[in-house]
Nucleic acid binder design. Sequence first.
DNA 1: GTACGTGCAAATGATTTGCGTTAAG
DNA 2: CTTAACGCAAATCATTTGCACGTAC
Lengths: 130, 130
Amino acid sequence: MESKNIKYTNQRIEILNFLKDFDGHPTVDEVYEGVKVKLTRISKATVYKNLRFLTDKGLIREVNSKGVSRFEGNLVPHHHIICVECGDITDYESEELTDYSLKVAEDIENFKVEATDTNFYGFCGKCLEE
Amino acid sequence: MESKNIKYTNQRIEILNFLKDFDGHPTVDEVYEGVKVKLTRISKATVYKNLRFLTDKGLIREVNSKGVSRFEGNLVPHHHIICVECGDITDYESEELTDYSLKVAEDIENFKVEATDTNFYGFCGKCLEE
DNA sequence: GTACGTGCAAATGATTTGCGTTAAG
DNA sequence: CTTAACGCAAATCATTTGCACGTAC
């Protein structure tokens, strides 16, 4: 959609690398702390600006759990398992489910569907014990 | 899960009524403005407290679009069509898709799935024109 | 009657903005 | 070179909290 004219600054490169390596869905603060290891002088405002920027450009994705923004670098279509107790998010791959959803999407009128994912809500193992 | 001991105050009843009648997915402010018509003295803190309370009790549901919390009173399982441009959310009913997702969910281990829904991301008619 | 909810105002926390300086292309 | 991005601090916006008073049950 708008994949041109991207200035690859050190800050953006580090954020992208961090998200690529991170196994999970970090919050803004977690991205900030992680990137600060390499770029000691980076400011949190820059992290905010770039997470939004990169999301707009489609290079990363924003996920939401319990009202908190989280981010992921995994652009391969996948689904999310969300614990309603602790807010933890786990990825779940199911190409069949994606395909099925896209098939359903063909019936939707007056809207151009570009992507789809499914959320599974419930309780993770840890929270079930309590 | 925790459907006992609910004190039905005027404030809670009005919030539930408002969400029942509202065609869409209002933000906290929209709920506040809507409820204030009947209950002129209600405070925004009370709206916040009760939206969270009612969500915890499972009487309403929280939805999220572009980092903003929104709420709905429609508890019948359904899906969401989300415009990535303007953040607008529309409901979409497809029992087949829900059933299919729940079938897929049976394969998930170490997690108790209680509900599922699918998001369709893209551009709404209004935003496509621009 | 009592515990829980309310309204208010103040506190906290998250996110954005303005601006002089710096660096990518 | 020139334009966009950065870092910082201040500003804004969203949400939560503490507490005296009121009300559902």
